[in-house]
């Protein structure tokens, strides 16, 4: 019996968002995609520094004086601050200005010399959170909050809730291929088997789990090392699989920046995840796979 599959792909957050629903009617598929699409768009409006939403407004105002933060965004910022603390500052949403500067510069670089030069001009320690007023203030001129490193994970978490609320217990969701959510099991039984596009023979079984992949594409670097302000110089690719899409997203970035020696300490602060480290000098190193322990 052939299985009917509903699929929809749309543009969001400067990438594409794909929904795959097995065994669902076209009509329900369309209704669900529409709801997901609206949700993702609203999420992008709120969290993108390139749209005219709440984050863009705060970026424009918070150096001149404390800027009030609407509830939903406040919740996001609090999560970001917690992850910043939990990752020893490696996951940092206040590095947007470095990214802007780096991509303005003709020669992008993650040369070791830059790593060596401490540059602590920006970072979440330059942001004052007033919990009573629910406001933020930047203490460094030019500081920019950038939720690019967590936005897709947050969206996937929200999408997961939407799907569950609608009784969907089987779905494959890919946000730009770097953030993936595999709900339930593969319709042919067992977990969804997901590989990395450019790494032959990778196979990560995913069942009710999310995967996040970090890596720098030459010319399109986006991960900044907060300790140096330069592009982070991690492995070729690093994938994190875990139950929570947000944690997977945060960890794939933080672990990408951290040195391999720093990773266990970092992972000890998170729930159980699996990590796949793809070195630049080898196609695929199946180990080490760290299993973090509960906090």
């Amino acid at each position: 019996m052939p299985v009917r599959v509903y699929h929809h792909t749309f543009f969001a957050m400067n990438t594409r968002f794909s929904l795959v629903f097995p065994e669902i009617s076209g009509n329900l598929g369309r209704i669900l995609s529409l709801e997901v699409r609206r949700y993702v768009d609203a999420q992008e409006e709120m969290t993108s520094r390139f749209r005219q939403g709440a984050l863009a407004r705060i970026n424009a105002q918070a150096f001149d004086g404390a800027a009030r933060v609407p509830n939903a965004l406040w919740d996001v910022l609090m999560q970001c601050r917690r992850h910043w603390e939990q990752t020893y500052g490696l996951f940092d949403i206040a590095l947007g200005a470095y990214r802007r500067r780096a991509s303005d510069a003709p020669a992008r670089s993650s040369r070791p010399t830059e790593h060596a030069r401490p540059n602590r001009q920006y970072g979440l320690d330059k942001v004052v959170f007033d919990e009573r007023e629910q406001s933020v203030r930047f203490t460094a001129p030019g500081l920019v909050l950038d939720l690019g490193g967590i936005g897709k994970g947050l969206a996937l978490k929200g999408v997961k809730a939407i799907l569950e609320r609608n009784g969907v217990d089987q779905a494959f969701v890919s946000f730009g291929e770097s953030s993936i959510l595999a709900l339930g099991e593969h319709p042919n039984g067992g977990p969804w088997h997901i590989g990395l596009a450019d790494v032959p023979n990778t196979d990560l079984p995913l069942s009710n789990e999310a995967m996040s992949v970090s890596g720098q594409t030459p010319g399109r670097e986006h991960i900044v090392d907060p300790r140096t302000g330069a592009w982070a110089n991690g492995p070729r690719m690093l994938a994190v699989v875990g139950e929570c899409p947000v944690e997977a997203e945060v960890l794939s970035t933080a672990l990408y920046i951290a040195s391999p020696a720093e990773r266990p300490r970092l992972l000890s602060r998170y729930g159980k995840v699996r990590v796949l480290d793809v070195r630049s000098d080898a196609d695929f190193i199946p180990t080490p796979i760290y299993e973090g322990s509960a906090v």
Binding site: P2, V3, R4, V5, H7, T9, F11, N14, T15, R16, S18, V20, P22, K152, F172, S174, G176, E177, S178, S179, I180, H186, P187, N188, G189, G190, W192, H193, I194, G195, L196, A197, D198, V199, P200, T202, D203, L204, M211, V213, S214, G215, Q216, T217, R220, M237, A239
Partner: peptide
């Protein structure tokens, strides 16, 4: 994604190579 859909429709199951750095238009 295309591969995954084909696979589900045909009732087969093997790892689908999909993960990677974010796609940009």
């Amino acid at each position: 994604i295309v591969q995954l859909i084909n696979q589900i429709e045909k009732g087969t199951l093997e790892a689908v190579p999909i993960g990677g750095p974010s796609w940009v238009p």
